[in-house]
Simulated scan of single mutants.
Amino acid sequence: MLATRITELLGIEHPIVQGGMQWVGRAELASAVSNAGALGILTGLTQPTPEALAKEIARCREMTDRPFGVNLTILPTLKPVPYDEYAAAIVDSGVKIVETAGRNPEPYLPMFKANGVKVLHKCTSVRHAMKAEAIGCDAVSIDGFECAGHPGEDDVPGLILIPAAADKLTIPMIASGGFGDARGLVAALALGADGINMGTRFMATEEAPIHRNVKDALVAGGERDTSLIFRPLRNTARIYRNKVAEEIRGIEDAKLDAGEKVTIDDLMHLVSGERGRKVYEEGDIDFGIWSAGQITGLIHDVPSCADLVHRIVAEAEAIIDARLAGLRRPAARAAE
């Protein structure tokens, strides 16, 4: 068993956390991950109202008696989101772990702290991780450039970002972006993290509540089958490289080549959340944009969450006990 500061903090068996994913982080997946001994995460804003989130939390609790958390991503939106009410629904439902992302979660920390909620904040830079520690977050998830969704604008990969953050932080840290197997877990621990966050990898599991076509696309995809969009908007997002992604990139490039500014209005007809939701529900992988990280290049099957978690942990222990330990030679022999 791999015991770290994050397993102790969260009360989980294995140092693996499921990422919060829009339209994907529902009770079926979160409960399966938690039942496997890792930490499942419900995605708060997947639910249309705070009341619906409370019901989803109750549904997840019926499916697992182990710890699980809720992701609350705080972002500017065209339509106002009642973030205060979502936060209250989390607290009132008795959830004790929250993953925040997007904007600074400081306004919500007093309420979370007063109710014994552990707060993990997702960051894409060392400076933001240090700020999260300073305001009182219990842990951070440090997101490298390989990740799905929004990797920030610094373009720093995990191999550099994780140890750079480890050098500065004293609170536990989860490595995120590009993780999906035992090798990644061992590497993350060696780089100074206390566990890993897996989003895209958990999409390709039996319990993920998305269409099989999406899972099969992740298995078939390689490390080059993602695309970066919204770069001209300074809101970069990594998505699966499909026909819509290519169309978006074409519009962005054409505007830039013409010396014109790219605006969200140029792309709105292609990037609506409803189109992405239908991809997951109906299985047409080219209908809209959907998030995927570069880890798709290392996804080769669609196991159950339990099989995936247990395989990663068992193989990680074997790497540590056999391969790494076997690299060491007695000092006298090494000097020969």
Results as ranks from 00 to 15, higher is better:
263 T>L: 09
188 A>N: 03
218 L>K: 02
142 I>G: 02
205 T>I: 05
235 N>F: 11
210 I>Y: 06
182 A>K: 02
150 H>S: 07
277 R>Q: 15
201 R>A: 14
177 G>L: 07
157 P>W: 02
171 I>Q: 04
214 V>A: 14
144 G>T: 07
232 P>E: 13
259 G>E: 03
176 S>L: 11
186 V>H: 03
147 C>S: 15
273 G>F: 11
275 R>H: 13
276 G>K: 03
261 K>F: 08
233 L>K: 05
185 L>T: 07
153 E>C: 07
175 A>D: 03
147 C>V: 15
254 A>V: 03
182 A>M: 10
169 L>K: 04
266 D>P: 08
222 G>K: 01
151 P>E: 12
264 I>L: 14
214 V>E: 05
156 V>A: 07
204 A>Q: 06
257 D>G: 03
245 A>H: 03
177 G>K: 10
184 G>Q: 11
139 A>R: 07
145 F>S: 10
160 I>D: 04
149 G>W: 08
259 G>F: 09
167 D>W: 14
242 N>S: 13
180 G>N: 01
144 G>M: 10
174 I>E: 04
223 E>P: 12
243 K>E: 14
153 E>W: 04
138 D>C: 03
241 R>W: 07
234 R>G: 02
201 R>V: 04
187 A>Q: 07
161 L>A: 02
180 G>C: 02
261 K>Q: 14
226 T>W: 05
129 A>C: 12
146 E>I: 04
241 R>M: 07
169 L>F: 05
197 N>H: 11
275 R>K: 15
204 A>V: 02
189 L>W: 01
205 T>N: 09
240 Y>M: 11
138 D>V: 10
197 N>A: 13
163 P>S: 11
158 G>N: 09
208 A>L: 04
133 E>K: 14
202 F>R: 00
237 A>F: 06
243 K>W: 00
176 S>C: 15
191 L>M: 15
261 K>Y: 08
146 E>N: 09
173 M>Q: 09
231 R>P: 00
274 E>L: 13
238 R>K: 05
233 L>E: 04
138 D>M: 11
216 D>N: 13
233 L>A: 06
267 L>H: 05
187 A>W: 01
271 V>Q: 03
199 G>T: 01
220 A>N: 15
175 A>S: 11
164 A>H: 04
206 E>M: 11
184 G>C: 08
269 H>D: 15
219 V>I: 14
172 P>W: 10
257 D>H: 08
226 T>Y: 12
144 G>K: 07
239 I>G: 02
149 G>K: 05
204 A>I: 10
211 H>Y: 12
258 A>T: 12
203 M>G: 04
255 K>N: 00
172 P>V: 11
202 F>H: 01
242 N>G: 06
210 I>V: 12
142 I>W: 06
269 H>Y: 05
244 V>G: 02
176 S>F: 03
171 I>S: 00
156 V>S: 01
221 G>M: 02
186 V>G: 02
186 V>E: 03
155 D>C: 11
131 K>N: 14
208 A>C: 11
212 R>A: 12
193 A>Q: 09
224 R>P: 00
207 E>W: 08
153 E>L: 15
277 R>S: 08
161 L>S: 02
232 P>A: 15
155 D>N: 14
152 G>A: 09
275 R>V: 10
217 A>M: 13
219 V>T: 12
190 A>V: 04
253 D>P: 00
163 P>G: 11
209 P>S: 13
234 R>E: 13
277 R>H: 10
180 G>F: 06
155 D>W: 14
261 K>C: 00
